[in-house]
Amino acid sequence: MKIAVSATGSGLKADVEPRFGRAKYFLIIDMQSERVLKVIDNSEGMNAPHGAGINAASLVAEAGAEAVLTGRVGPKAFAVFDAAGIKVYSGVSGTVKDALEKFKKGDLDFDKGPTSDGHAGFGAGFGRGRGGGGGMGRGRRGLGRGRRQ
């Protein structure tokens, strides 16, 4: 069985990246041998202003993973996993190695829906504070509940 883990580095000692779509690496791991079969470099996709999750999920699906271990998954990436028949295990933290252990022991539960509300859409740099803040927020979740410009 092949699984994918979102990670901050390219080896088993790296931490699990909590944000799925904006992870720098996806490690494709063979559960039998516990070896990294492939490192997907997502450094381009992680900075995409739109649809990072969709793109990242497609890469993972294309690599043939049957499950993904990560922190949080938004609704669009989840839809891709759903269509690809990939099980999502979110809320995972610690090192990749720790995550694999937990997965093997059956300590993780897979998700029935997305674990992060979507924040894809309009590009970066459109935040805006209403009233107090000056309209220079970056990103959609920047300044409280400010409307976007």
């Binding site: 497609s58 699906a61 891709v80």
Partner: peptide, 10 residues
């Protein structure tokens, strides 16, 4: 805008 996802035959 990553509005289209293609993977395998999907």
């Amino acid at each position: 805008f990553n509005a289209i996802a293609v993977f395998g035959k999907t």
